[in-house]
Measured scan of single mutants.
Amino acid sequence: MPSETPQAEVGPTGCPHRSGPHSAKGSLEKGSPEDKEAKEPLWIRPDAPSRCTWQLGRPASESPHHHTAPAKSPKILPDILKKIGDTPMVRINKIGKKFGLKCELLAKCEFFNAGGSVKDRISLRMIEDAERDGTLKPGDTIIEPTSGNTGIGLALAAAVRGYRCIIVMPEKMSSEKVDVLRALGAEIVRTPTNARFDSPESHVGVAWRLKNEIPNSHILDQYRNASNPLAHYDTTADEILQQCDGKLDMLVASVGTGGTITGIARKLKEKCPGCRIIGVDPEGSILAEPEELNQTEQTTYEVEGIGYDFIPTVLDRTVVDKWFKSNDEEAFTFARMLIAQEGLLCGGSAGSTVAVAVKAAQELQEGQRCVVILPDSVRNYMTKFLSDRWMLQKGFLKEEDLTEKKPWWWHLRVQELGLSAPLTVLPTITCGHTIEILREKGFDQAPVVDEAGVILGMVTLGNMLSSLLAGKVQPSDQVGKVIYKQFKQIRLTDTLGRLSHILEMDHFALVV
């Protein structure tokens, strides 16, 4: 994948999101292997301009796509893939009243899908469409860049269908997702969380590099694949309309690839034109409109599966009536509230959605109805927002919020430890010299600072030695090549209790 991002070429006709291997024109390309080798690009942008032909009021008969309808489940399912879809609609009884809503608040519980998330729908649909058009064949390999849930859905379907599955996901995604993927037989590649989507090191860039190296491999490409919004247009939206008897006044959905909100909203605009569509985008993402909503100094966020630093091709923002931004604290607070007060075992993005819903639905009156999409299960986040310690460490809970008995030293300040200034190293000294210094002084790690004293990161003896043994660096290389740029900081005025929580999850903390 090139470091400079080429513009994806656009073909003359058809839909841009065809499933299957992508040609340089962004659509299915038939021909000899030699032709494909000559024409197939190194990668295709996940934010390529959409060429979708959908228009409100256009006859369904003019759609270029294969459409399906929700099917009634048999008493005995032939395999677990038949437990994807037909998820329950559940009334939220307490939270709406707590925040003064007059309307009825309903939750579409997508964590009841077989793999635990709304992404099971698009995973199965992308595979079925690729099999139907002859792209996927027995023994082929599926590769997908994902925040985890699409990966789980694909790995689940691949396990049943017999495909090899490789999932490329950023490091910030939970260990629970990784464990589930491994249990399903998927191979996992992790990428830096802070890598831009168009960087060769991003999950998108690495996935395309693997595709170019592995024979008979395919990126189904949830960011561009029409099967993504079509899955929701054909099934999720129809289920909502049936469950609500066609009567709903507002739908609120958090947005990642945009397939969920695009597919549902398009069908609702056709069948229930008075329904307002509300999009939820986390602070630090750029999906919301108008652009002024996205202006923030924050560039990272903890909530998973929603928000991006690019506009995915499948996201149709014209069908969203209003956007709201959400933050991590309210997302996790509301997710825990949904679990504790409503018994809905949902993930953090569901918290984002409901946090926005109780604001947006203030305009609705008694007798009206708001539906929220709860995308995934708490299963993926047992060591994250479900953990009091994690919430404390991230600053989303305060010590006084917890009532468990603490040891005698818990409320003492870090400054009472009488710490001395640490050994520091410059980023320009060599790895070999740094190892000598650390061994001589008896230290395992040291902060790396520039000549102005600005902290650049941390270097550890173990990481340097393993990097040297693996051949990633040489003793003569500058130590700046092996620094940890993500590390926890703590102030002298913070409590030892807070430091204790940090050290339970990290090997060190830097006192500043």
Rank of each mutant, 00 (worst) to 15 (best):
K94V: 05
L210E: 02
E187F: 06
I261T: 13
C15V: 08
L101H: 08
S27W: 12
M126F: 07
G259N: 07
S23T: 02
G20S: 07
A69C: 11
R209Q: 13
R58W: 13
A114P: 02
S199E: 05
A60D: 05
D238K: 08
G185R: 10
N216V: 02
V255A: 06
V255H: 06
S175H: 02
N225E: 06
P59R: 02
R121D: 04
N228C: 02
I219A: 05
L77I: 04
S117C: 06
P12A: 02
C272M: 15
A107I: 06
C165T: 06
E131A: 10
A157E: 07
F112E: 02
G185Y: 02
E201A: 02
Q243G: 02
E4G: 09
I264D: 08
R182P: 02
L105M: 05
E62I: 14
T235A: 09
T193S: 02
C15S: 07
I167S: 12
T257C: 02
P273V: 10
E270A: 09
E34L: 04
G116V: 15
I142S: 05
V90S: 09
I219R: 07
L77N: 08
A107V: 15
I166S: 07
G256N: 02
I167V: 04
P6W: 02
V90F: 02
T5S: 11
T150Y: 07
S61Q: 12
A130W: 02
N194M: 10
K177F: 02
A253D: 09
K94T: 13
S254V: 11
I240L: 02
V118L: 04
R18A: 14
A60V: 10
S227C: 08
I261D: 11
S174C: 02
T68F: 12
S217D: 02
L251E: 15
A207V: 02
A38S: 15
Y163G: 02
P21D: 12
A130K: 02
I92Y: 14
E40M: 02
G185I: 04
R51C: 02
S199A: 02
A253N: 11
R209W: 08
I152W: 02
K119L: 02
L241P: 02
I142V: 11
D249C: 05
E9G: 10
R164L: 08
G20Y: 02
E9M: 02
C275M: 15
K25G: 08
